[in-house]
Design a protein around this nucleic acid. Structure first.
Lengths: 344, 344
DNA sequence: CTGAAAGCGCTTACAG
DNA sequence: CTGAAAGCGCTTACAG
């Protein structure tokens, strides 16, 4: 005879001499089970090292114990770090993480049209994806709570965790101005998708506002792709100009690192001849002595995870929570290293 | 009245005027459904934008459509890149990826004892975890196919994809010897867990073998943690010695980057006064002009994913595949940049 | 506090 | 080729 592969609720019930209804209740910590019975059940479950079948549980109206996490990609520092924060938090409560990556627009389109997460998860976390109205609707149509991380506010009273990108830009540019720079350029990053990243807009407008408020003239701005290559290219563009600015605000640390590489190759010394500042506090920023504005990345993941788990336990609609409660803005802070100094 | 949340197989059956048995068969591409009927069913399913309930499917004896991926952590370049390769591949066939991270030994212990993946996935990919015999057994007890990536051979005829770490070390050291170095030290990384990483042993023995075969004397070796900090520390130790070697083989690029940082701070010029070489071809290696031995990381993930999917479709036991077939070793190659040069 | 029973949405022999 | 029916392992009213 073939032994049963897995022990099920019936086995636990038999071993503890009760019905499966009681086992189900006890295991989920529901009221309506006497302490004695509960004890007996828990012991039996442990002895048999029983785990509920998520399939059966879900099918019968329970939860899946799974949460979907949607990221553009994972082989990039920001996303993998957010993901690590989420994974850690899920692990403590035993929630399974179903990962969805949308590396290109085809994958993205497929995801939002087919909604492969449908009927598979109890909630979803969307990381750093600027959504069109249609896409936002589709996420809602998953019919489960959603939480958004980074980049843009999803609108409505959807939960959002992120930083103030405009402020981050102003902190960076403010530092340059504070130490005496008057001729500040920006290497800005642009995405090639049609939907503008809120992050990008905010960092750009923060730069311009800070420049304007300091009474400085029209700054030089070059636009490149968001990558180390892009940063290299951007600095090459600046080096090709009539005169070099005394400082450059880079859209991100990746851009800044590319810029530093070009400067090193060009024999321009940093910070003596030019100051460079980025945003993010990428691990390589420390390694390359880059001044930057740090954002708490792992924390964003952790907080998002907690938020989503909160939705899952307190199933009740958060009537008490006002609209504004849905937005959590984390602080950014200047990290001064060796790539910035006063001009001359 | 409350509208049904989701459309189920019965709806599709009704719309196409057949029984749910036929719908089930048609949707899974099984034989035994006439082309006409199949067409009608497919159309109805599309119109209703129906997706099968994985829960119900699994419960009834089908597959979950999910594969578990176990990684030590994700906020590190190697793992997130392997993961990206896996995720891409899964995406093309619609397999869901359930992510498990084991950041510390507590999480690891919990994972192997509780086997949270039990009954939840059709297969599992284990990335770069050196397993004890007990842990290997536990993975087998999941009762689903498993594929291993990187680091160590799992033994038996389990599928494994990785590189030849000993060869990688020899390629690196061979380059140093080839350009004239005779005094070569190593900064080696040690893990703090009790189980030795096969990767580590292999890179270390590759170093020693190459040194020995070149007839060079007893090399200086310092041991540190696998991190940029560790690399910094290691180079500090070498700088504290009686005389500086002319070249240093670093266990990994991260170690090498830390070493470079210390040298920069110490005012020792690379490669004029000392050559540095790493292993991995971490993105920062390019940025910091580090010579290294590259390994295909994303490919390892992709191949592992394909392998696991192969197991899933061809459910039949691979009787034809001999034992050796289970091991896939990917090539490594020297990438020469500016951190190595002939001595003097 | 406890249990018998219906039902969740599928897959799979078994008949026809 | 097609369908009626059992059963996968749970949860949840409904009785007691």
């Amino acid at each position: 005879m073939i032994p049963k592969q897995t022990v099920n609720m019936t086995d636990v019930a038999r071993h503890s001499g009760v019905s499966i209804a009681s086992v189900s209740r006890a295991l989920r910590g529901e009221p309506g089970v006497s302490p004695t019975t509960r004890d007996r059940i828990m012991t039996a479950a442990r002895e048999l090292s029983y785990v509920v079948s998520p399939e059966a549980s879900r099918l019968a109206g329970g939860a899946t114990g799974r949460v979907g996490v949607v990221v553009p990609r994972i082989d990039a520092w920001f996303y993998s770090t957010v993901l690590a924060g989420i994974a850690d938090e899920f692990d403590t409560v035993g929630t399974d993480l179903v990962l969805c990556t949308l590396p290109d627009s085809a994958a993205r389109h497929r995801f939002f049209e087919a909604l492969p997460l449908r009927r598979k998860v109890d909630a979803v976390v969307v990381v750093s994806l600027p959504l069109s109205a249609r896409e936002r609707t589709r996420i809602d149509q998953l019919g489960v709570p959603s939480v958004f991380v980074g980049g843009h506010h999803p609108g409505g009273n959807r939960s959002w965790i992120g930083i103030d990108d405009e402020l981050a830009a102003r902190q960076a540019v403010g530092h340059l101005i504070h130490i005496g720079h008057r001729d500040i350029a920006m290497i800005q990053a642009a995405d090639d998708t049609d939907i503008p990243w809120a992050t990008d807009q905010a960092r750009i407008s923060g730069f311009h506002r800070q420049i304007r408020e300091a009474g400085l003239g029209d700054p030089t701005v070059v636009t490149v792709k968001w990558s180390i290559e892009g940063g290299s290219r951007g600095m090459e563009m600046l080096l090709s100009g009539p005169r070099l600015p005394t400082a450059v605000f880079c859209h991100s640390d990746e851009i800044a690192l590319g810029a530093l590489r070009t400067l090193r190759r060009a024999g321009v010394s940093v910070p003596q001849q030019i100051s460079i500042i980025g945003v993010d506090d990428h691990p390589s920023a420390d390694l390359n002595d880059l001044t930057t504005v740090a954002q708490p990345v792992r924390d964003q993941g952790q907080i998002a995870a907690r938020e989503v788990l909160r939705h899952l336990v307190g199933e009740a609609a958060p009537v008490s929570a006002p609209n504004t409660d849905a937005l959590t803005t984390l602080p950014t802070r200047l990290v001064i290293r060796g790539s910035t100094a006063s001009p001359h």
